[in-house]
C-alpha cells in the first residue's frame, strides 16, 4: 500500500482535526437524539401503553400516541435534513480547503 504524501500533510493540518471532531460530535449527538427518542417510545409502549391512549383533548377521539408517532417519523426526516445541510455545506467546504492545502 503506497502512502500518499498528501495524507500525512492532511493529518498534521489542524483544520483536519477540527473537521473530524466537529463532524463526529455532531453526528454522534444526532445519533444519540434518535436513539433516545426511539427507545423512549418503545419503553413507554412496554411500560405505560395507556399513556399513549390519552385523548389529545376533552371529547376528542384522537389520542396523543398518533401525533407522537408521526412526530418521530417527521423528526427523523428533519434530523437527516439538518445533518445533510451542515455536512454538505460547512463540512464539505472545510474538506475542500484541506484537500487544496495538502496539494
Amino acid at each position: 500500500m503506497t502512502i500518499n504524501p498528501a495524507v500525512a500533510r492532511i493529518e498534521k493540518n489542524p483544520k483536519y482535526q477540527e473537521l473530524v471532531s466537529r463532524r463526529s460530535n455532531f453526528a454522534w449527538f444526532l445519533t444519540i437524539v434518535i436513539l433516545v427518542v426511539y427507545y423512549g417510545f418503545i419503553f413507554v409502549i412496554a411500560y405505560d401503553p395507556s399513556f399513549l391512549g390519552t385523548p389529545i383533548s376533552e371529547g376528542s377521539v384522537t389520542t396523543i400516541g398518533f401525533p407522537i408517532g408521526v412526530s418521530i417519523i417527521v423528526g427523523a426526516i428533519i434530523l437527516t435534513g439538518i445533518y445533510v445541510r451542515r455536512a454538505n455545506g460547512e463540512f464539505d467546504r472545510l474538506t475542500q480547503q484541506l484537500i487544496e492545502e495538502s496539494k
Partner: peptide
C-alpha cells in the same frame, strides 16, 4: 390500529443512524 404505527417508526429510525455514521 395504533400498533401499525409502532412498526412504521421502528422501520424508519435506522435511516438517520445510517446517514450519521455510515453512508459517507
Amino acid at each position: 390500529g395504533f400498533d401499525g404505527l409502532i412498526y412504521s417508526v421502528g422501520w424508519l429510525v435506522g435511516w438517520p443512524v445510517i446517514l450519521f455514521l455510515i453512508a459517507e
